[in-house]
Design a binder for these strands. Structure first.
Lengths: 394, 394
DNA sequence: CTGAAAGCGCTTACAG
DNA sequence: CTGAAAGCGCTTACAG
């Protein structure tokens, strides 16, 4: 298939090593393979080029020459400058299209003093959340010249801020998108301002100027869950929240309590436990709650993982869902529809949220421009499945 | 907190628009905000700089001046060239460390004609797989000057190859990591050779020169599953495979059949169905298999998602797991330990695989160098839980 | 509306 | 072992 020449070139490539390790300094230097490319065309032709005429990628200079203009004018067209005669623009953009020319992002970035990379910074451990969010951001980036660089983090780590500074400064990120709970970290946001790096935060409550926020109204979704349970006739209703370090945990509790209040019910202190958004914490809190007298007939958990834990706790105690106890989760993750019985849960359109966050960052100057200065609001919806029913008759 | 000056600068930033849309050409040009930065320091000082002395980032020139050498020599140190006197190196690297200097990846990339971006190209729909893989790759990248750019794809799309070419060529990727099933696509690999882009493929079988492969021996894991079921006493054993377009589907079937053969059993034709690696296909194939006479007493599925489908099928048919039928999955995804009963499954160390793939790509020139020319082998392990037991007595 | 010059921060190619 | 010059492919700052 592929010729020997090329393959060996590939494998001879040497890693340009980490500058951080410069002290060690052994090893060869990276000029190894590049010569090959510069050899007179004949060298390649011999074995390889028969396959495809390895056309060298064209540059802004080629376009300029072909269009009989300066490269600055080509640059203007690339950057949508209004100061180009329509005729000139047309001529240039035609050539650009025909050649399939695309400007080099590195060169552009170097001159712009800003890269074409969008960073996604996250610390949410739920795989599905992360992947959906990535997909949404990529949806918005499709057809642009941006690429998505991902960055998990641990905001409790001592080097957290230093790492972030390094990352953002060095890559000269065009902008970053922050998801919960790192989106709630004001130290990071302060750093972002200092580094002059645009950002959009996704959070359960507005924490910043509207133009930088995608707000998921967890309050509203949790209230729906509360009304649903109340309307089924439940009175003894418990809650397992996420950890206090997550704003969403508070918002969901608040919304749930509000929803109950609307129906004349209240969230009793001893029916309200703090979990950790994990399966295990759901088992623990679920076991405690279900051992109480009187036993709650319904439990709302801050996410689906903990709901799965409650399922396990119930089974271990010989209780059946929803006959003995109803359960409502939050997230509507894939597990929700793999569990048995299928879990009633509050759904957030994660992928859409990612897309909206990226669009905000790009600050598209279209008719939607005005809207971009407002916060973007996301309303969760309750998905009723099999895990909720009337309370047991006693 | 943050000063008005900076904030407004941030929001005034204009998106450098997509060159692809250059034809449209309306709108303003992006020189808007840059002036602000160039304003005499006083402008910033007025309100802001009191916080921290906004030190301009140092460049290779600063280092050179301070060390009394040419910038070429600094460059040599950065790139670990052996042609630097130890004393010179020491002096330079000390200064580098003290200033916290890190070379600009864009400038370096432009000169190198290759970026410092690693691409992860994937089409696997399982969120947990993707996230674990990303984590592993990032594990290997920590402390290097590389960043991870992600790229989901659909290799059945008509523009697939063109998109990939565009992506790789334009970003001048340092290298890419391919996960199943796109890792099995020879057209893509051919393109990678043509573009002279290093890669590592993760797949269930060696498809390429060893130095480019991380091979997961799915055969071995599936054989373990077969032996486990045979040793429990099962004779009527069924299989639901992944789609024929995935190599892993064939490997898992083959391994399973091999394992059965070792125990004097064989995988009967009518007990062998093709699924689609999805929950729904697991339900469909599971329902069919469990309606057969004689009914199989055990089912091995090509992944956990389909096992979850079999769970549902069994419940709908009034069958109990593992009393009436044993089930073994593959992947050991989080659902496996959220399901009830807990699913016996074959585990692949995805995160480690990601790390190993990235390390191969970096081709670390350490003592491990020799090993890097061999394929990297990954052996799955069977995790026995609650979904497998002796067959029902009839 | 357009262009010539200088520069972004690095590395290559060449010379010593 | 070290350096001066040229260049990577773009954009900015300035001039017209």
């Amino acid at each position: 298939m592929v010729t020997g020449v090329r393959i060996s070139a590939r494998y001879r490539h040497t890693l340009a090593p980490d500058p951080a390790k410069a002290k060690k300094g052994r090893d060869s230097n990276p000029r190894t393979d590049v010569n090959l490319r510069k050899k007179p065309a004949a060298a390649l032709q011999t074995k390889a080029a028969s396959a495809e005429p390895k056309r060298k990628k064209s540059t802004i200079n080629d376009i300029a020459r072909m269009a009989n203009v300066s490269k600055k004018t080509v640059s203007r067209v690339i950057n949508d400058s209004p100061f180009v005669k329509e005729e000139t623009r047309l001529k240039i953009s035609t050539i650009i299209r025909e050649l399939g020319f695309a400007p080099d992002p590195q060169a552009r970035g170097l001159a712009f003093r800003r890269s074409f990379l969008i960073g996604m910074i996250f610390d949410n451990p739920t795989a599905q959340y992360i992947v959906n969010m990535q997909q949404g951001i990529l949806d918005a980036m499709r057809g642009t010249s941006f690429e998505l660089v991902i960055r998990p983090c641990d905001r409790t780590a001592p080097t957290f801020l230093a790492d972030m500074r390094h990352f953002i400064e060095r890559q000269k990120l065009f902008g970053v998108i922050l998801t919960p709970s790192v989106s709630e970290d004001d130290r990071l946001v302060k750093l972002l301002h200092e580094l002059d790096c645009p950002y959009v935060r996704i959070a359960a409550v507005s924490l910043d100027t509207p133009a930088t926020m995608v707000v998921t109204h967890d309050v509203s979704g949790a209230a729906d869950a509360a009304r649903h349970l109340a309307d089924l006739g439940h009175k003894l209703i418990a809650h397992i929240s996420g950890p206090a370090t997550f704003r969403s945990a508070h918002e969901r509790r608040r919304g749930f309590a509000d929803g109950l209040a609307e129906r004349g019910l209240k969230l009793a202190r001893h029916y309200d436990r703090e979990g950790g958004y994990t399966f295990e914490s759901g088992i623990a809190a679920g076991t405690e709650l279900l051992s109480l007298k009187p036993r709650p007939t319904a439990i709302f958990t801050g996410n689906d993982e903990m709901a799965a834990g409650v399922y396990k706790a119930a089974r271990d105690l010989g209780l059946e869902i929803p006959r003995d106890v109803s359960v409502v989760g939050f997230d509507d993750s894939p597990v929700a529809s793999r569990m048995w019985p299928l879990l009633t849960s509050v759904r957030l359109p994660i992928r859409d949220m990612g897309r909206m966050a990226a669009e905000k960052l790009f600050h598209r100057r279209t008719e939607k421009r005005a809207q971009n200065d407002d916060a973007t609001d996301v309303i969760p919806t309750l998905v009723v499945r099999e895990s909720t029913d009337k309370p047991p008759v006693t």
